[in-house]
Design a binder for these strands. Structure first.
Length: 772
DNA sequence: CAGTGAGCGAGCTTCCGCTTGACTT
């Protein structure tokens, strides 16, 4: 048994470190925090100096008892949790729970998992820094106060099970404000002029260049007039400039930039990126994936240098040291990089391989030379106007890091790729081949994707690498936000083309507003957001986290008592909570749309118990209002009176079929026909308001045909039991439940008895439901 | 899979940050 017990946070880390430390050291992991505030009874004794009530959560008890066992047989305990606020707190909780003393405890830290760093740490132990622990305690208690006071307020005033918190509520606010910016956006159009010019080169060959007018034209009259003038003009290159530009690589990955690039380049969701990265980390392929640091260990820097020089030559290498600009970064780890940079490729599942390659390239590129680019700008005069055209071209003189990696931004995608210009000279006379003025509409801002929201949150210092992905799941799970593909719309744009002194007008269809996988706030998200902003402006402020972080820093530096800080915050906060509880009405986000011309009743929309709804008339003694759920793409803020009135036209009876009536309605899952106790979905092309009985019968028959194909076998003895063909192959359906058919059976040869025994067997398996 | 939305008001929900599993119906 080792004399030394080292405790780190992550089990994968423990394995590596044990190798470095060798004999006499046992390395175990705490799996993160081992204690947390109790959930019941608030977990903070507010009246008693905000005393935190800590407990060991159920799922951590086993780990704690194991650590206790190892502690007993060790002479020295080395607390090697991360060097940041949370890590310091973990060290303290460990020392409390394991009953450690100052004599048998050493606190050590390292920022990189290399032999030298760890040796160095062991040689320079210190004590637990209680100021930092207090700063963490303040952070933890503040979050509990905010979360567990605001959430119940929402249950009372809006809807049960809702939640609010320092991080999630501000994330939702970002989305709500972006959405309103888009809703309120007033689009306008102008004309963009582009031209194709030609000239003969020294060999007499015709060469074409593309150019653009440096300004937009206001409207179609101006565009027509401009082109008319162009028809009469002559053109000349009056100036030729070249500029050399340098482009530098991006720093190595942090959690947030990895999520962004994996989203853009590989189409991964934030959660997917993290789970793939976790697997790579556990397999020892990459360094830790939850980090805000762009730093690389000196060992890594040396290997990168060697690999770049070996692979591309020494002029491709450039040593660089990056600095974190992120607010509140704690830099307890390295940047995300391959553990062994010499491994360009790895084996394993495709997602892991792709993410690894991305990390490898980014790490390598971050230590490569600048790209040198020569930009050429040709200015082309128009003889009868003072306006000029410009043609720009870019030539890469030295590719440098671009050999491996380039960051694609959303703007790049919009502007298209850069062009290369043919050899040009000043004074060259040009002929126009075609000059085009096409209408361009201004565009509202893009909505946030998961990754771009993470980027924004990081900029504001809200959330941490370990919480970006969970926060994004939370706001979706609470129903504040949905991830959507927005189809966009089409519109006509006017295009004028000038060729051979003739102007031709045409109209083109243009798609716009199409967005893939974007986060869109729901009605409930908006109502909750507005409520919180009205009553808790300071907590919803984008700077709130930054402000309290400053105070946490003061606590960590020993200049401020944590209880004092919390008390200052709470005394004001508490008053607001109580006031809101007493004074504010139940909030539904109600909006009155107008009056129904048929009934004379008022039409309104609001958030109800089960989501957004339209209501016809208010409750009176002699009148019960009608209700209808809003459809998926309808929003309280934008729905019109006409659209709301249409909702009350359903359910609709559209005739009989086989002596049973057919009723059309819309449910949570979309429009359907109900007939003889069965349900048939309408297709996207069918409009529930106008569908006729003929089409409805067609749908019913199609569905019946498909269903019969699904049946592999039925038993006349027991009609409840059927063998069906599903998405994942054959299965048994019995009394509304489905059962998997074990692989060694042939589904077509199963007897009723076989089926029942399969069902009995699968029922015997424990249905392990767990409380969390 | 396929609605619901008045009122008795039980008993439940909830935060942020550290970590990794349990699972596939």
């Amino acid at each position: 048994m080792g004399e030394n017990l080292v405790i780190v946070e992550s089990p994968a880390k423990a394995k590596t470190i044990e190798k470095f430390l060798g004999k006499g050291f046992v390395v175990k992991s705490s799996f993160g925090h081992i204690r947390d505030l109790a959930k019941k009874d608030f977990g903070v004794d507010i009246k008693n100096q905000y005393k935190p009530i800590y407990i060991v959560p159920e799922d951590k008890k086993k780990i704690v008892s194991e650590l206790k066992k190892f502690t007993k047989s060790a002479k020295l305990i080395w607390l090697a949790s991360d060097e940041d606020r949370e890590g310091e707190a973990i060290a303290w909780h460990l020392s409390e729970v394991l009953g450690l003393t100052e004599e048998n405890t050493r606190r050590i830290v390292f920022h990189e998992i290399t032999k030298n760093a760890i040796r160095n740490a062991v040689d320079n132990p210190r004590k637990i820094n209680y100021n930092v622990v207090q700063a963490q305690q303040a952070r933890r208690v503040l979050d509990r106060l905010v979360g567990f006071k605001l959430s119940p307020l929402l249950w009372r005033k809006i809807k049960p099970s809702l939640s609010a918190g320092r991080v999630q509520s501000v994330a939702v606010r970002l989305l709500v404000e972006k959405e309103r910016e888009i809703l309120n956006f007033k689009t306008s159009s102008s004309f963009k002029v582009s031209a194709i010019f030609s000239f003969e080169d020294s060999d007499g060959k015709k060469v074409e260049i593309k150019a653009e007018l440096s300004r937009r034209l206001k409207n179609l009259i101006e565009a027509q007039g401009f082109l008319r003038q162009c028809g009469q003009a002559s053109y000349e290159i009056v100036r030729l400039e070249t500029k050399s530009l340098k482009r530098s690589p991006a720093p190595p990955f942090t959690t947030s930039t990895l999520q962004q690039e994996a989203g853009r380049k590989l189409g991964f969701s934030v959660a997917q990126t993290m789970s793939v990265a976790q697997k790579l980390y556990e397999a020892g392929k990459i360094t830790y994936m939850r980090t805000d640091s762009v730093n690389l260990s000196s060992l890594a820097l040396n290997t990168v240098k060697k690999v770049i020089e070996g692979e591309f030559g020494s002029k491709y290498h450039q040593f660089r040291k990056y600095q974190t600009k992120t607010k509140g970064a704690q830099e307890a780890h390295e940047a995300i990089r391959p553990t062994y940079i010499e491994n360009k490729d790895i084996d394993g599942p495709a997602a892991g391989v792709r993410l690894y390659n991305l990390i490898w390239k980014r790490t390598m590129a971050s230590q490569m030379s600048n790209a040198e680019i020569e930009k050429t700008i040709a200015t082309i005069s128009i003889s009868n106007m003072s306006d000029v055209f410009t043609a720009t071209g870019e030539v890469i003189k030295f590719d440098g890091f671009l050999k491996l990696y380039s960051v694609t931004t959303d703007e790049d995608i919009e502007n298209g790729s850069k062009t290369i210009l043919p050899p040009l000279r000043e004074g060259e006379k040009l002929n126009y081949e075609m000059i085009t003025a096409s209408e361009k509409f201004t565009q509202p801002p893009f909505r946030y994707s998961e990754a771009s929201l993470v980027k924004k949150m990081e900029e504001l210092g809200i959330g941490r690498p370990s919480t970006y992905a969970p926060t994004i799941s939370t706001i979706q799970n609470r129903g504040y936000v949905v991830k959507e593909h927005l189809d966009g719309n089409e519109r006509d744009i006017i295009v004028y083309e000038l060729t051979e002194d003739k102007i031709r007008e045409s109209k083109k269809r243009e798609k716009y507003g199409r967005e893939k996988s974007k986060l869109v706030p729901t009605d409930i998200g908006m109502v909750v957001n507005d409520f919180l902003i009205e009553h808790f402006k300071s907590i919803m402020d984008y700077n709130f986290t930054a402000l309290v972080e400053k105070e946490f820093d003061e606590i960590a530096a020993g200049n401020l008592e944590w209880v004092k800080m919390i008390d200052t915050f709470y005394s004001d906060f508490h008053v607001r909570v109580e006031k809101t509880l007493k004074e504010s009405e139940k909030t539904t986000g109600e909006r009155v749309l107008g009056v129904d011309p048929d009934s004379g009743e008022e039409v309104l929309v609001k958030v109800g118990r089960y989501g957004p709804l339209a209501q016809l008339g208010k409750v009176r003694e002699d009148y019960k209002p009608r209700f209808a759920s809003l459809r998926k793409n309808q929003r309280i803020e934008t729905i019109s009176l006409e659209e709301a009135l249409d909702l009350f036209k359903l359910p609709r009876e559209i005739g009989d079929f086989e002596k049973n009536s057919m009723i059309v309605a819309i449910s949570k899952y979309g429009p359907y026909i109900r007939h003889d106790g069965k349900f048939y979905s309408l297709t996207k092309q069918d409009d529930p308001l106008s569908i006729n009985s003929e089409r409805a019968i067609e749908i019913i028959n199609t569905k019946r045909k498909e269903d019969s194909k699904k049946e592999i076998k039925i038993f006349s003895e027991n009609k409840n039991l059927r063998i069906l063909n599903g998405r994942w192959g054959p299965y048994i359906s019995y009394e509304k439940k489905n059962y998997k058919i074990p692989k060694n059976y042939n589904p077509e040869e199963l007897s009723l008895k076989d089926c029942l025994s399969i069902i009995a067997n699968s029922k015997n398996k424990k249905s392990g439901k767990r409380k969390s």
